[in-house]
């Protein structure tokens, strides 16, 4: 079977790539986001007072850490053309779980494990409804957004639990020796590397892209479409719970309404980072840069005493422009191939 099939005359040879390396690296959506990030940093360093202070860096990282964490599984989910709107509610639920467990005298490591389990169960519920029952993820996670938040607020009411062991709250806030960077950066970088490997360098990752571009062809190629999505929603639940633990310890407060609305920031950053809302396209370094871009811009504007309303407007405009831009590109791409489709396949008589 492996020797000459079809008695190949003068075997053709193929170049791996159509465009030279520099073009493939620089002329991408991700590079554009990274360039924008570098420009914003450069301009801020030159014009914004205190932007280069260590404290700014520390607070910036602590601020965007939950978004950065949740954006990783979210990016993978959006690449499969699904979405998870319930992540912020899982953060809230995790926060309440951790608080109640600690209040009940559960030792911290066990409480953390319990909280991560709650996140896993929440993600599994999403995954079950989407892949087994077959409901659209948009509808399912709007539902569980309300459900998980409702449970969280119901459990704790409007009160807050604040008596966490100092060792753990310090752990969340402390910096790496000799740097302004908080310890949370370590798990973030670790998870970023793992998620990048999974998405870009494994068969599982190839399946994720294939699902996003053509579910049916993926199914016909032996990709476990349902199992893949289920795994991603579970991951999303666990990572959101982890972000919830960090969130709670960082602010030293477990509340049912913690991180309300955070899902929008996460999705905004993922889309800004070049992941197509139509699925099948995007890369994690772009997502990383997207989150940093929103964070750095907000931080610089705040330091310049721009009101938070204006900051919201600016990030909103940025996001709309980027999503509109990438959507137009995606539509054009599909139209190009789709137009050929109409020409090339006469419906069989």
């Amino acid at each position: 079977m492996t020797d000459t099939i079809a008695a190949a005359p003068a075997a053709r040879s193929y170049q791996p790539h159509q465009r030279p390396l520099w073009q493939r690296i620089l002329l991408t959506r991700e590079s554009a986001v990274i360039a924008a990030l570098l420009i914003v940093i450069a301009v801020s360093l030159a014009t914004v007072r205190n932007f280069d202070s260590p404290l700014t860096v520390t607070y910036l990282v602590l601020d965007i850490a939950p978004i950065l964490l949740i954006a990783l599984p979210m990016a993978l989910i959006i690449v499969t053309e699904e979405i998870d709107l319930s992540v912020a509610s899982i953060v809230g639920l995790a926060s309440v779980t951790l608080g109640l467990a600690v209040q009940a005298g559960v030792p911290m490591p066990a409480a953390i494990l319990l909280t991560l389990t709650v996140g896993l169960v929440a993600g599994a519920l999403n995954g079950f409804l989407i892949t087994v029952v077959g409901l659209p993820s948009l509808a399912v996670t709007i539902g569980t957004l309300a459900l998980f938040r409702g449970i969280a607020v119901g459990l704790l009411g409007t009160t807050a639990i604040t008596d966490f062991p100092e060792f753990w709250t310090d752990l969340a806030r402390d910096r790496i020796e000799g740097t302004p960077i908080p310890l949370i950066a370590i798990p973030i970088v670790l998870l970023f590397v793992i998620f990048s490997l999974v998405l870009h360098f494994t068969p599982f990752g190839r399946g994720i892209y294939a699902i996003g571009l053509n579910k049916e062809a993926a199914h016909f190629s032996g990709v476990h479409v349902g199992r893949t999505k289920f795994t991603l929603f579970v991951l999303s639940g666990v990572v959101s719970a982890f972000a919830g633990i960090f969130f709670t310890l960082n602010y030293g407060s477990a509340r049912g309404d913690n991180a309300t609305g955070l899902e929008l920031s996460v999705i905004a950053a993922v889309l800004l980072g070049g992941v197509s809302i139509f699925g099948g396209r995007g890369a994690l370094h772009g997502v990383f840069a997207g989150v940093l871009l929103i964070g750095v811009l907000g931080s610089a504007l705040r330091l310049s005493n721009v009101s938070s309303d204006i900051i919201n407007v600016i990030t909103g405009v940025l996001l709309v422009l980027s999503v509109v831009g990438s959507s137009l590109l995606a539509l054009a791409r599909r139209a190009r191939i789709g137009a050929r489709k109409k020409d090339a396949t006469p419906t069989a008589p």
Partner: peptide, 12 residues
């Protein structure tokens, strides 16, 4: 629809 991921490369 079933055989190819049209927007993906020949190699993939």
């Amino acid at each position: 629809k079933q055989g190819l991921v049209l927007e993906s490369s020949v190699a993939r």
